[in-house]
């Protein structure tokens, strides 16, 4: 799952090392326009819905955090 997420991230901004970066939002590697694209891509790729309340820095600061969020939402969709 994480590799697929990194591919999506690289498509949005290729200038970041997503394997190590843990400040994607804090350091503005992903801006609000990029965030909308990212959410749309993630929703399509994993068949989930990401509500606005989940769009916070702690869920999107790293590829690992995004993976965790997506895994949780996938699980909730299955419930």
């Amino acid at each position: 799952m994480q590799e697929e997420i990194i591919e999506i991230l690289e498509d949005i901004n290729p200038e970041v090392d997503y394997k190590t970066c843990t400040t994607l939002i804090d350091d503005r590697h992903i801006d609000s326009l990029g965030m909308v694209s990212l959410v749309a891509e993630l929703e399509d790729a994993f068949d989930i819905t990401i509500p606005a309340v989940e769009v916070v820095a702690e869920n999107f600061n790293s590829a690992a955090a995004i993976t965790k969020l997506v895994a949780r939402l996938v699980e909730e969709e299955e419930d």
């Binding site: 949005i12 965030m35 909308v36 749309a40 891509e41 399509d44 990401i50 606005a52």
Partner: peptide, 25 residues
């Protein structure tokens, strides 16, 4: 304002259509 509007259902549907038509960016 920005995220609630961007991530509302009608705007998301529009985003999906626009991505197919004009690409991911």
């Amino acid at each position: 304002v920005y995220y609630p509007v961007s991530l509302s259902k009608p705007v998301k549907r529009l985003t999906t259509k626009a991505r197919k038509r004009f690409g991911n960016r």
